[in-house]
Amino acid sequence: MDELLQQVAAGLATGSIYGLLALALVLIYRSTTVINFAQGEMAMFTTFVAWTMLHWGTYWLVFILILLMAGGLGALIERVVIRPVEGAPTLNVIIVTLGLFAIFSNVATIVWGGQPQAFSHYPINDETVKLGAVVLSVHDLAIMLFAALIMIGLYVFFQYTPLGLAMRATAQNATASRLMGIRVGRMLTLGWALSASVGAVAGMFVAPIVLLQPPMMLAVLLYAFAAAVLGGLDSPFGAVVGGLIIGVTESLVGTYTPKEWLGPEMALTVTVFIIILVLVIRPTGIFGKRVLRRV
């Protein structure tokens, strides 16, 4: 029982990271129906910038600066690269994000080298905390705390501020929103900025676990994509829940399935097949709206 709880807690911690990046994906998907495949690499890039800045600044100052810079980067990308393909088929926009993926991952390797770097100067120490029978590192707790804070913050922003309302309206029906006087273009830019910031937080929390290196976000991105799809691509809440479900499932499958023919190496495989099963039963994810089409 104790081991079960321990595994669930560990799964929740990794799941929070998947959930954060999934949230970033959903923020863009909701308004543009585009999966941003560059999301993880953008986060990796900003984390490398943070790593460089940490040589002269304190952690929390850098953290705030990086969030702002990531927002700027997201907005810039939307304006310069995404805007020209706005009317094109969705697949084309996805290919553009794949192009961004290639640029970020390779430029990062050229600038910072391919060697893994310890994410040093990191203030959240490796001490562990005992909660009942469960032992968690402070880092894991911080991840969960930040994921919860970001969720609540975004919820308040979307539900209770005029700007959040405008963004939701844009996501639901861009034409009608434009007729109501909402600057749709700006809302899209803002969506990219928000999403890049949320992704940057995920990057900052992944780096201490897996060492800072150019390919570090690839696996996280794939899990986040799975999480967003599992939760339903138009539901931010679903994205986080999807992330948690995937984290816990992976952790449990790795521990409790027979080692001879499944076990930890097959955790990913079993997890993705569970996702497919869920999708076959609910084709638009757990919290996703069913899309109706008029013919």
Binding site: V81, V96, L98, G99, L100, A102, I103, N106, I110
Partner: peptide, 9 residues
């Protein structure tokens, strides 16, 4: 590959 990304866009 970085050039390829740019070219793709």
């Amino acid at each position: 590959w970085a050039l390829y990304g740019g070219l793709l866009i």
